[in-house]
Each structure stands twice: as C-alpha cells, then as structure tokens.
Design a protein around this nucleic acid. Structure first.
Length: 554
RNA sequence: GCCCCCGUAGCUCAGUGGAUAGAGCGUCGGACUUCUAAUCCGUUGGUCGCAGGUUCGAAUCCUGCCGGGGGCGCCA
C-alpha cells in the first residue's frame, strides 16, 4: 500500500463518516487530499495523520474523540494492521507487513515513472535561467542556476508541468560593442580599452578569429568592431552551449534579445502596456508607471535620446513569453539582481496579469569556492573569474551538480573543493551514488547465485525493522518530488536521497539478499531482491531528477 | 535611508503550525576469511540570535530589535 492509497482510504473514511452523520461537517470541509506522513519516531507507526486535529474545530468535536472515531473505521480497511490515537489526536497507522511490502512491486512496475505525478498537470511553465551575456565564459555566478535551474526543470516536468527552459541571450547593447572593441584591440596587439573585457580569453578569442578570418584586419576600423563583435559572439555562444551540454544542462529555447526587436515583439509589448494604461511621457522619455504596483520608482522604457532601455526589452520579453501560452513565468536570478523582483512583478501587473500567479522570481544567493581552507577567486583560463569549465575540470560534473543542488538557494553556498572531490562519507554525492552502485552489485550477485525475482514475491517476509523503514522512505518519494516542484526547491530531492541511501545501507547491513555458502535460496532472498531493486529504481529516478549519474559500479 | 536573504549542535546545514528539534562531519569507542567497510553500530553534543504577539500547539506565522551577507542607475 502506498501512502497515496492510504491517504485516499482515510479520505473515504471521512466521507463515509460524514454520510453516516457521525462527522458533522459540510461536504466542502473534507480536504481534497488528506495529509499522511512518516512520523519522526518509528514507534509511532508506519504513517501518521493530523487530520483529526485539523477537522476537530469544524466538526465541533474534541480532537481525540474525532480521532477515536476515525481510528475505529480506518482499522477496518484491508492492509491496515492497527491505528493508534496519540497525543492531542494524531492517528498513528501501522500497515500489514505484506501490504507495506507490496510497494516494492508497485515501484518496479512503474519503473522510471515512479515519482511522477500530476501535481502540476495542465500548467505551462516558462523557466528562464542563466541568461548570460555572450561576451565571455560562464562563470561561478552562473553555475548555481545551471545546476539548480536544470534540476528544477526536471522536477517540474516530473510533477506533470509542461516546461520550457529558456536562456535569454543579451546580444544587444553597448556591452556587445565593448566586447567587439576589446577583441579588435587584442587582435592588433593594442591595450584593451578601459571599459572593455580584460579576461585572458579575449586574447585567445582574437587569435582564433584572426586565424579563421585574417581579412578582418583589413576592414576599415569602424567595420572591424562589428565584425569582431559578431565573430566573438558566435564563439562565445557556442562555447556556452558546449559547456552547458557537458554539464548536462539543456535549454529548449535560446532567445536572442535582437530578435525581440526585429520580430516586432517590443512593439507588441509596448502596445500591451499602453492598452492597460500604465505608460506615460515625462522629461522627454517614455515611462512605465510601475509604482502603481508596488515598485519603488517608475521605470524608463524609451530614453530622452530615443533609445530603448534594457528594461524595455525585459517588459517585451515577458509579454512575449505569456503570448506563447505560458501560465507561469519563472525567473531564476542571482542575489545581486534581487532589486529586479519588484519591477518584474510590476511589469506583469502592468501587462494586466496577476503578479502573484503569472510571474515568479527566485533569488539564489552567491556561491564561493574554497580550497585548502582558502577562498578561490582566480581562474587561469579567464584571468579574473572562475568558470563553469574550471569547476567541471576540478571536481567533475556529478560532484558539482550534486553539491549545488543539495543546498537551499536561500543560503549563500561555499563549495569546498577538497570535500566534494573526496571519495568518503563526508561527500554526500558519493554516499548516494555508492548506495546505487551497491544495489546494482547486489542485483548482479543475486543473478549469478540464482536468486530471481520472477520465482517469488511474498511481501509478508519483509518483516525486519529496517525493511519497514526502507519501505516508508520509498513510499515518500512521489510526495517529495511533488513538493519540490510546488515549492521550486529541488534540494529536497537531494536531501531525500541521502536519507534513502542511509536507510538502504542500514538494511543492507542487516538483511542479506543472497545466501551464504551452501545455504539454499529461499523466498526471503527472492523477495528481498524485489526490495533491493525497488530501492535501486528510486535512487536512479532521484539522481536523474538532479542530473547526476547513477553508476552501476564504483 | 529603503529593499531582499540568512541567524538551528564545535563546523557545514536539513526541517513551508504538530509528538522527545534532526543529518553529515568532528570527538571517543566498536564491527571486515565483506551480497564492495566508499558501509554499519554506539558515544558526545542545543536558552532553534533576542523580546513580544497570534493558537489547542511556533524553529516554522506576525511585529520590533541585534548580528552577518547582498542590492538600490534615463548602466547593460
């Protein structure tokens, strides 16, 4: 029996009790889904519900009296071994060993789909993250979202949402010209302009470009800036795509800011905002009255010299995303951009949308690196910044992704290179991956010793205390994934996997899947293999949601 | 000045109103002729920053304060 099935059974009990007149509440006061959770203390049973505490006031009953009533009825449900009322009115539920063990079969039948849900079914989500300028390598500031944004996309999809992952390419504006001027200067062996790009990669870029297109140097100077700019743009965009590909982060849409202007999206955006009546002119500029919706000042769309602000692109881009049918537009930004939250929310409101529903801005705190107890600030490759490529080279994709996704983005994160490259228990990625490798190893050994799942499955034999714990953890997975999606917090999946790995290691220590020596193969061995393989499936599914590999051997 | 995030064990951090607040590391002590010991078991460890409030119940929600980090542009 899965917790979802138990929850449904408990809800049926509520509905029946109401129909009998035993539970005096209105039909709409029966919760759509009844919370069933694992209790902290094992001795409190397999599952617990606080539904009696929540409904007591509405029913005008004492919480314990209501709990007693529900307990008596729930005990009658097949698969439920016992129901105890504890404390102020908790229902502590213990399942039949066999009913609990059935979960192993459920998981293996679902396979890679176990953990998927329809929690966000019907929602179309636009997920924009990283959105770096194509003027240099992706750096440490981008890595957090490269990992977490990608994992969030996977988690949202697992919860049933339609997800479009989008990278906004800031390929317009004076920074692009500064970039072109910097490459050109490097190509001529001249000093880089003060306001240009000073990383070592600029010189490498100049060398590559000149090697490919030597005739660029013969163009008139004014044309050279644009030519080097475009060549550099192509190189950097390709390099960003390449490193993100190596990192396992995939985008559905690379949205060029230029196309926003050439496609008429900017005009359509302005039109939308004018219709809603929030555009005005003052001091020779065109403004959006974002203060109507809580922003601390109004924002300029068109400067007094007639040029468009970056904010104008932002507004048009938002309107464009919505016009493409996305219900929710999620922006993943760094802490240094938190000032954008107010104005982005106001943009949504100015466009006639609900800023509480149609737009979400998630802020990730900064990431720092530590090695040998000292902060790492410099990169050989880029001169002044640490790149995503550096991080991959130093710690590998799995360690980097896992370390980044296991932390809440609300907290600043310090990655200790020494720790996350260590192959020991204090490196959580190895702890979880090793658990998976161990399940695979047990499967292989079982096969070679003639222990086959097909020969028997008798879940009543999974009666060890460590098996009840492991089954409980496995049952939680769909709820964890759905919650991670709803709260936009993929780190919950990683934390869950660490607990699951721990429950598995403990079980492994107590319950053998394969016989020792001449001992015959029994149904206990065969049934335990089901549990081993179910655990393997959940570990693999969870690691996949984080974009981390699930090794067969380590 | 205003805004955002954080403050939980010696350290790094989980814990979106529930029961006796948890994990890893660290300390100290155990378990390997192993279904891989990259593991497991035990031990040690807390005024959940402080003060009020909300309620059957607060680490969690609200207010104020203290401490740390980040941000405020007709830049991009």
């Amino acid at each position: 029996m899965t917790p979802a099935e138990l929850s449904a059974a408990l809800r049926d009990v509520l509905l029946t009790a109401r129909a009998d007149g035993a539970l005096p509440i209105d039909a709409d006061q029966v919760p759509a889904s009844v919370t069933v959770e694992r209790p902290r203390q094992r001795e409190h049973g397999d599952w617990a519900s606080n539904v009696a505490l929540q409904l007591a006031k509405k029913a005008g009953m004492a919480p314990r009296a209501l709990a007693d009533l529900l307990a008596a009825r729930l005990t009658q449900v097949p698969g439920v071994a016992s129901v105890d009322v504890a404390g102020p009115g908790f229902l502590n539920i213990t399942l039949d060993t066999a009913a609990a063990g059935e979960l192993a079969r459920t998981i293996l039948e679902a396979g890679a789909d176990y953990g998927r849900s329809d929690a966000l079914a019907g929602q179309s989500v636009d997920l924009e993250f990283i959105s770096a300028n194509p003027t240099g390598p992706l750096h440490l500031g981008h890595t957090r979202w490269a990992a977490v944004g990608d994992a969030l996309g996977r988690v949202l999809a697992a919860a049933g949402a339609r997800v479009t992952r989008e990278f906004y390419v800031n390929d317009l504006g004076v920074q692009m010209d500064r970039f072109g001027a910097s490459i050109m200067a490097a190509a001529h062996g001249e000093p880089i302009p003060e306001d240009g790009y000073h990383g070592d990669y600029v010189a490498d870029l100049a060398t590559s470009i000149v090697a490919e297109q030597p005739d660029l140097l013969d163009l008139p100077r004014e044309e050279q800036v644009a030519a080097f700019r475009e060549a550099g743009y192509a190189h950097q965009l390709a390099a960003q795509k390449d490193v993100l590909g190596r990192f396992g982060t995939h985008f559905d849409v690379w949205y060029s800011e230029r196309t926003l202007h050439t496609s008429g999206a900017v005009d359509r955006g302005f039109e939308r905002l004018r219709e809603q009546g929030h555009v005005f002119e003052a001091d020779g500029a065109v403004w959006l009255r974002t203060t109507d919706f809580g922003d601390d000042k109004d924002r300029v769309l068109v400067k007094s010299d007639g040029s468009l602000t970056y904010f104008a692109s932002d507004t048009a881009y938002y309107v464009d995303k919505r016009s493409r049918g996305h219900d929710v537009c999620i922006y993943l930004l760094g802490a240094d951009h938190h000032g954008y939250v107010g104005r982005l929310k106001a943009v949504a409101a100015c466009a006639g949308d609900d800023p509480e529903h149609n737009i979400e801005v998630l802020i990730g705190q900064l990431v720092n690196l530590l090695q040998g107890g000292e902060p790492v600030r410099m990169s050989k490759r880029a001169g002044t910044i640490i790149t995503l490529a550096d991080l991959i080279e130093w710690v590998g994709v799995d360690a980097a992704r896992y370390s980044l996704t296991r932390a809440s983005t609300d907290s600043p994160l310090t990655l200790d290179i020494d720790v996350i490259t260590r192959k020991t228990n204090d490196n959580p990625v190895f702890y979880v991956q090793y658990a998976h490798a161990r399940t695979a190893n047990v499967s292989r050994n079982a096969e070679s010793l003639g222990v086959r799942r097909a020969d028997a499955f008798d879940p009543g034999l999974l009666d060890d205390a460590s098996e009840a714990v492991l089954l409980g953890m496995l049952g939680e997975f769909p709820r964890v994934v759905a919650q991670a999606a709803e709260l936009r917090e993929p780190h919950r999946v990683a934390r869950y996997l660490e607990e699951l790995a721990s429950a598995y290691h403990k079980w492994y220590d107590r319950c053998r899947v394969t016989p020792v020596g001449e001992e015959p193969v029994t149904d206990t061995h065969r049934t335990r293999l089901w549990l081993n393989d179910a655990t393997r499936q959940v570990l693999a599914n969870g690691l996949d949601l984080l974009g981390v590999s699930a090794p067969e051997r380590m």
